[in-house]
């Protein structure tokens, strides 16, 4: 479904992603872990057309999408839920959701939020006409996820969806991700909660300094989770 080969991303002199190749098959949940600064966000942003690709190739559904602009990539069906949520603080919850459907909406806004979405996110359903800024951290993350789903993506890129959440909220997010996968959505998720992420992943990669240092089936890496965590810990200790 999504195949990244030899992807390199640079910020001036800094090489954030160094010749990475990953594959995400249709309907799979693939996770990426790695220490802070390993290049996880840069990789997702390159796929989503937010940051420039220095070299390498990104193929989606048989089509080369390397170098397309962000809005073109959203139109193709790849949607990213960015790190730090990036809500619209001065728009209402409803408008945040509608913005998520931007690339698929008509000239006149249809302000109705689909029932299925409201049922999946009851806390948002109750707050549709409040400002985005009035939500709690957990609700804000739910809104970011719901907004990403509004466009009915084929591939969902999630960048640290549990960052800064309480344990209960973290579990809620993981349950939701697993449920979405079970319904057939293809998901690439960046996560620092290694064990929980590996437990639901079909396949996983570990990144260090812009390179892949470990990869394997979720279950296999879970048996080796000490080693995986050492990659996170090693960089943290520095």
């Amino acid at each position: 479904m999504l195949a990244v080969s030899n992807l390199t991303v640079n910020y001036g002199e800094v090489q954030a992603v160094d010749s990475i190749s990953i594959k995400v098959k249709a309907g799979e949940l693939v996770s990426i872990t790695g220490a802070n600064g390993a290049g996880k966000s840069s990789m997702l942003n390159a796929i989503a057309g937010i940051c420039a690709v220095a070299s390498g190739k990104i193929v989606f559904a048989g089509e080369d999408i390397t170098g397309l602009r962000a809005h073109q990539i959203v139109k193709k069906g790849i949607v990213q839920v960015p790190e730090g949520r990036q809500l619209f603080a001065t728009l209402t919850v409803r408008e945040n959701l509608l913005a998520g459907r931007y690339s698929n909406s008509g000239f006149l806004l249809d302000k109705v939020i689909p029932d299925s979405l409201v049922q999946r996110f009851p806390a948002l359903g109750e707050r549709l006409d409040l400002l985005g800024s009035s939500l709690s951290g957990g609700q804000a993350q739910m809104l970011a996820l719901a907004r990403g789903l509004m466009n009915h993506p084929e591939v969902l890129l999630l960048d640290e969806p549990t960052l800064g959440l309480a344990p209960i909220a973290v579990k809620e997010v993981f349950d939701l991700i697993a449920e979405l996968r079970d319904q057939g959505l293809t998901i690439l998720v960046v996560e620092q909660n290694v064990r929980q992420a590996l437990a639901i992943s079909d396949y996983a990669y570990v990144l260090e300094s812009g390179r892949i240092v470990m990869q394997g089936k979720g279950g296999e890496l879970l048996n080796n989770s000490r080693l995986v965590e050492s990659y996170l810990g090693a960089a943290r200790a520095i």
Binding site: A48, A70, H71, Q86, F88, L91, A99, Y102, L109
Partner: peptide
């Protein structure tokens, strides 16, 4: 408040980066 380009205009005013993620050019 009622049209797609109008929403995009307000979204870009609010948070340009988030707008890019939404596929707003």
């Amino acid at each position: 408040f009622r049209t797609r380009p109008g929403l995009a205009l307000r979204a870009v005013s609010d948070n340009p980066l988030a707008s890019t993620y939404m596929g707003i050019n």
